[in-house]
Amino acid sequence: MLRYVCKRLSQGFFVLAGVSFFCFLIFQYMGDPVLALVGMDATPAQIADTTQRLGLDRPWYEQYLAFIANVSRGDFGISYLTKTPALPLVLKRVPATMELAVMAMLVATGLGGCIGVLAAVRPHWRVSRALMLFSLAGISLPTFLIAILCIYLFCIVLGWLPPFGRGEVIRIGFWDTGLFTNDGWRHIVLPMTTLGLFQLSMSARVLRGEMMEVMLEDYIRTARAKGLSIGAVVWRHALKNALIPFVTIAGLQLGQLIAFSIVTETVFQWPGMGALLIASIGQNDQPVVVTYIMLVAVLFVLINLCVDILYFFLNPKISYV
């Protein structure tokens, strides 16, 4: 087990090394970082000074080592736009994105799981058929279309919910949260639903498939035969075994949700990392883009590692060598 974790950790390390080299290439060679920092009307002396300060006159491997050294100290360079360090700019946006992604995941796995179980237990019931058809639409339609539809319906026509922003937030330590205010909840409902909808369909379909397979097993028939109610059999016996693949998928979904929050944040003007990324790409603010990429790469490596370890504990049949 320990050996397996070490192996996965070293793999993750190689991924991060690759991503960091890639980021370094963008950082040093795409566009002109010197001109971006000093501005167009700088004197040659200023340009030479900044070039030396950024280390651009040294060979590439020295530059790469310096880049790694800086990154490991948390120094991702200076944002071209705000002229402040890039890392705090991105980190400040992390709570908003994580809150949105985790809430969306609860919607997706919780609600999606219930729909999946329902559709598996009563496959011919009209309600479960309608729900599965609805889930096909959820998989097919682009997230931004669903988001715009929701804004139109709930914000413009009905006027129930606010169309953009995060509302009132409370600061707890370093974390800004909107989950303890009424206003914050009103703001998060639509983004988390639209973001979760795609994964909801996915969860429903996966759990339905698993449940239908498990329900055919002999021990389910035995449990029914010894007089247990259908509810007890579904929840205590079948669901437990159907959940194993479901948990891994739910874990991987968190990564997907963080990625797709870029779209949701843009439509709802949610002040998270994704909205910052799109704004920074639009304004050619490379240090912020690089910081985002590195941060997301670390996050994905961690999530994948956690899912693998979780899978190991949930399914003792599998051995890793």
């Binding site: 991924v15 990625a259 797709f260 990324l277 883009v289 997301v296 994948n304």
Partner: peptide, 14 residues
């Protein structure tokens, strides 16, 4: 291990 959407977006952004 990365969503296709994220990779394509980052490639284009870069």
């Amino acid at each position: 291990s990365f969503p296709a959407f994220l990779l394509a977006l980052l490639l284009l952004g870069i």
